[in-house]
Each structure stands twice: as C-alpha cells, then as structure tokens.
Amino acid sequence: MEILRIENLTKVYGSGENQVRALDGVSFTVEKGEFLAIIGPSGSGKSTLLHILGGVDRPTGGKVWLDGQDVYAQDEEQLAVFRRRQVGLIYQFYNLIPVLNVEENMTLPVLMDGRPVNEERLNELLGILGLNERRKHLPNQLSGGQQQRVSIGRALMNAPSVVLADEPTGNLDSRNSQEIVELLRSSNVRYKQTLIVITHDENIALQADRIIAIEDGRITRDERIREARA
C-alpha cells in the first residue's frame, strides 16, 4: 500500500545569481512499512527533501501526498496538526526542549494535541529506549545517545504515518550509532513503522530495504535491496 507519493518536487533558495536549486524535479513513492535510506554527499539536497516531507519547510514546486492527503494544500494550522499526528522527525542535533524533562519531551506532540497520554505506550517506549530510569531528567543531564533516544521516542510516541530521521547518528560514536539504528530498525519491524532515514553512513544504508541516492537535487539511483520486512 502506497503511503507517500512525491511528484516533481523542486526547492529553490535565493534569487538571481545566488539562486540554488536544492531539489530539482524529484519524484518517488514509498510503501507502508518500508525502510528507506536516502544517501548523497553534502549539499545534495537530501535534508531539504526530508524537511519538506516532514512539513517543516515549503517546496517551491511539486506535490507531496501522505496517506492520500496533499500535504501542502493545507493551511498553516492544518499543517501543524499534520506534523503533530502524522510525522515523527528525528534530527542530527536532537532538538529537545531544554527546560522539559524526558517524559515531557517525548509526550510533547500528544500533549499539544490535547489528548491524554497513552501511559502503556510511553512505558513501553521508555523501556525499549532504555530511558526508564531517566524519565524525569532534563536533556542536559543526558548523554548524546540518550538525547537522541528521547527524540526517537518523541517521533514514535504518536505512531505517525512516517518517521523521518535526518542523520540520526551523525553526532554519535559508533557504539551509540549502532544502538540507534537497531532501535529504528526494530520500530520498523515491531510497529510496521514506515521509516525514511537520511545518512551518509553506508552501514546504516545497507540495513534499509531500499536506497535512494541524490546528487545535485536529482535522484541518481533508486535501488531495492530487499523486500520490506514490515
């Protein structure tokens, strides 16, 4: 079942001489439960692509459908709700709120939605992420790996249609990196979670079901490594 469709996506920064085409007519689709890795050198436009998929940036042209919904046909208000419910974003630099503790950071999207927290799911996630002992800690009391696990927890909390991770291990050592990748992988299997990861770490890319390579804003390769396990 198709969960994400991207059509002819373009993104232009600046104007005139300084114009940069970060994305130049990108199109592809993603099946539900798929684990997709997007690779490419620095400045190839992969982060831009991910941000547009996550609804935190706006494309210059083209369309994005998530769950049959034209994402950028929505107004700001609907887009916020869309981000809150349908997308989980994981950044290289975690982007946690420093004044909120682990639990609050993880449940932020649910709480902002005004819904009650599913304690069962929270506890399960805390357990899987190994943060049970740390649930009342503030981000600056955690290691980098732990902080990234909190941001993964935040992304998964709402069981979104798609989880987008932007270099999730870029700031971590190899041991922590491996743990994070395993966590993502297992969420993909366990919750049939659709997962799109940007990376330039080949080891991570090779664990995906499918790899898309981007260069200068265009797809240069789209390769299925294995059938989706989810």
Binding site: G54, E77, A80, V81, R83, N95, L96, I97, M112
Partner: peptide, 13 residues
Amino acid sequence: QFGILKSVGATKK
C-alpha cells in the same frame, strides 16, 4: 525552541 515546538506540531495559536 518555538521552531522545535512547531516542528512537532505546535500551532500558531
């Protein structure tokens, strides 16, 4: 911080 909040779905309001 508002950016982070918005990226996880905070509305303008």
